[in-house]
Design a protein around this nucleic acid. Sequence first.
DNA 1: ATGAAAGCGCTAACAT
DNA 2: ATGTTAGCGCTTTCAT
Lengths: 333, 333
Amino acid sequence: MTRKTATIQDVARIAGVSTATVSRALSTPDVVAQSTRDAVARAVEDTGYRVNRTARNLRRQRTGNVIALAPNLANPFFSQILSGMASALTAASYDLLIVDTQTGPDPDARLIHCLRSGMADGLVLLDGALSPAILAGVGRPPVITACEWLDAPLPSVRVDNAAGAAMAVAHLVDMGHRRIGHITGPAGNVLTDTRRNGFDRAMQDAGLPLRPDWIFGGDFSMDSGAFAAARWMVLPDRPTAVFCASDEMAVGFMGALQHAGVGVPEQVSVIGFDNIEVAAHLTPALTTIRQPRSLIGMRAAELLIQMIDGNLLTGPTEIIPVELIRRNSVAAI
Amino acid sequence: MTRKTATIQDVARIAGVSTATVSRALSTPDVVAQSTRDAVARAVEDTGYRVNRTARNLRRQRTGNVIALAPNLANPFFSQILSGMASALTAASYDLLIVDTQTGPDPDARLIHCLRSGMADGLVLLDGALSPAILAGVGRPPVITACEWLDAPLPSVRVDNAAGAAMAVAHLVDMGHRRIGHITGPAGNVLTDTRRNGFDRAMQDAGLPLRPDWIFGGDFSMDSGAFAAARWMVLPDRPTAVFCASDEMAVGFMGALQHAGVGVPEQVSVIGFDNIEVAAHLTPALTTIRQPRSLIGMRAAELLIQMIDGNLLTGPTEIIPVELIRRNSVAAI
DNA sequence: ATGAAAGCGCTAACAT
DNA sequence: ATGTTAGCGCTTTCAT
């Protein structure tokens, strides 16, 4: 017996009131008489009624969804931000729709689609490789970024990446290092640029040389860190410390060095960025710059909800502080 | 100028046809005359029309959503499965709604809610701690599991966890180990039980003793692996090898041992389960049992879509093979 | 091959 | 405080 799900009509009939009253009893109880409210509650109980969100959303001209555009769901860095978003959205009874920009051919096309398909009341951008120009269109849903974006006048919740990078360099300098290298993120990524800029500035401030042969191109992945290690090892004149633009790269870098018999931090000090969970469990434990990812996700979701409710296309930008986590991958020299 | 988004009415008016024809031209083009089809296409182009999925879904009595219930978004293990699901669902124009069962008080309550709220056309269960009994209700949307569930006669896509665990033990035995311990997952989790059962059976088959003091309770997390290391170290009579029910626990276990100066694999061999990305980059690189997570997610999504389309509450179960990945955390003895 | 019309389930004016 | 009514944008009979 596949009993159809009850509708608001069924509840109204059983409670002996109109559908409008049922609707009010459910969404604005204070405007309904106590006795009526009780009758409705009983009828809801009897029928097992649950509001049909599709119908409600059609009527209300909204979707109840928030889309997160992330470059790579499989990356724990993003999934922790998503986890924070999920809790804030659940609390506000929005659903979280996740779009992996790597799935499918063109990330920018996915963004355009999400923007115009009306699938969501708001978007959170986590992919620093998306093109800001796309957002020029009017009448789009509110958009917030949870990563740094150059040029785009969008509200965002993020850390100060340049400051974090500078903090990393300062720590290496404090520990006596003068010969410092850097493994960067992929070209065209905002995070790559801002962390690189912070690195450059801090090096100059410390009066240290920026040697092109000590800059290793990476793509934030562990494998790219391992590849940088191979290049570090064949260098005739090596840096004594390396700032990796992501912990994942630091993991790959350290791993490949150790597999080749190079001691960390005895022969080279390593500092990362992000403080992913595994950082504390490595040997040596990875010194890094912590970003509170779950908090970033929560705040981004909360701000986006405010924009949606207030029908605003813009909003404040919030900078979440980063923090140096000293562990054992950096040695004094 | 906030030009409202075009509706099917606008397209119909501009194309000089009825809304019904526009609808047909879009969803069943073959029943519409070529000339009409062109006119509609032009009008769609002009207006920038996109179908309103909320309205379509209301009319079609579906939601276009698939919900994944995962215990912890921040765990890379689950996020890789989700990533696989996302690609299969996107291809079939379903959206992926992600519900974190850890967000909020009661995981089972979340499942009940998802089942009855009509928010989705189908569910994928990734949380082995949910209660099978909940699914008894009739008239529920199709449900598939992407993890092993005892008792529940649900279709599922998964690996044979017991066989994987047995494979791990067999490898340790091959390498000469006779004194083998096990770090388990949390109580009440299906994965914990099946891997534990596989461990027990393989030990018995090899004629090896199952010593209670060599079974360490964990919860799949890195921290719980580190905690097990502390207990291993104070043991008067230690196992020479440990099978960890998850790579994350293996990471924590190895890390804590190394921080305390215990050599892996010189003093104890370690084998994990899952093959998370970092496994290859650790020192020593972690020997483990590989699960193809992205594939599991894709197949689960595909099977679920078949169930939805065919209006079936049940379907086939698919076992994805696991594989031993030999690295350097297991030594011959 | 196309159009007219009836809703899907709900909410929000507008009445009373 | 409650009921009446008119849609939200779309698909799908049933006619023609």
